[in-house]
């Protein structure tokens, strides 16, 4: 959605443009996204990434589902093929950034204090401390939280949401906003499935499809190196697609938003 072309106007809110004015008061029809300031900063960040031909991926999940372990394995496998960089988001500590740096990849740690999510301004600030020259893929590891991070565009091109098999297989049904926002869902720690009798991967996929999500579901174990080839394949494909877009002067947001724009615009006619 934008604030200029009228695509914010849907059949449900059209009447507001003609609201009568009371005595002494005046009504102003606005129809602006509440997070417009964040979205402006996110667009600025995205332009910054596109200018350097960088693919930026936002990793989201519950705390402890294996985001950092996934990054460690990915770095070990791909660091000779691509130049990688990582922005880490946590409430406190440099621990995760230290784990990434130990593998020879530049990392900047955002400590949010008590904030439960990253926003576009925090990521912009972090970019000042991170040398992005020559970087192919930038990972942003969001604060472990299945609620708030889904609401804030950071300027990323793709969202990846992890669901570990030590959680409930109905997580997509419980946290629909988060799982709808994913461009790929990773089922992590699948090496533990034989010892867990209450997680059914088919049920997890069923809950995901109930959200009208057609995105790839990638079962893997970063620690035991199972299923990692499909993840690397997805990354290579996304990087190739990003480079092709940059060649054409185009960009992309996580898949949810552009479709929304088109349909909202449609409905507004």
């Amino acid at each position: 959605m934008c604030d200029s072309c009228g695509c914010n106007v849907t059949p449900g809110n059209k009447h507001l443009a003609y609201k009568p004015v009371k005595n002494g008061a005046s009504a102003v029809s606005v129809l602006k996204k509440l997070l417009a300031h964040n979205d402006d900063q996110a667009a600025h960040n995205r332009t910054h990434f596109d200018a350097r031909s960088i693919l930026t991926i936002n990793l989201m999940s519950s705390p402890g589902s294996g985001k950092t372990a996934l990054l460690e394995a990915t770095i070990d496998a791909l660091k000779d093929e691509f130049r990688l960089a990582v922005i880490e988001g946590d409430l406190e500590t440099e621990n995760d950034a230290a784990r990434i740096r130990a593998r020879g990849v530049p990392a900047y740690q955002i400590t949010t204090g008590s904030a439960c999510h990253l926003d576009a301004h925090m990521v912009h600030e972090a970019l000042h401390y991170l040398d992005l020259s020559g970087v192919d893929i930038l990972f942003i590891e969001n604060v472990g939280n299945l609620v708030c991070p889904a609401s804030f565009d950071l300027g990323q091109h793709r969202n990846v949401t992890l669901l570990s098999v030590t959680e409930g297989d109905d997580k997509p049904a419980k946290y629909p906003v988060m799982f709808r926002a994913a461009d790929a869902v990773i089922l992590s720690k699948v090496d533990l499935l034989p010892v867990l009798d209450d997680f059914d991967p088919a049920r997890a996929e069923h809950c995901l499809r109930q959200l009208a999500s057609t995105v790839p579901l990638l079962p893997l174990s970063a620690r035991k190196e199972q299923g990692m080839a499909a993840w690397y394949h997805w990354l290579r494909q996304e990087l190739a697609a990003q480079r092709a877009r940059v060649q054409d002067g185009a960009t992309v947001k996580p898949h949810l938003q552009p479709e929304g724009v088109r349909l909202h615009a449609h409905a507004g006619v």
Partner: peptide
């Protein structure tokens, strides 16, 4: 079918203000 797209329900909009001028 699950090949659907959202028409409404994800709004987070400032719709209207009433101001004393």
């Amino acid at each position: 079918d699950y090949h659907t797209q959202l028409i409404s329900g994800d709004e987070l909009l400032l719709a209207n203000l009433e101001l004393m001028t």
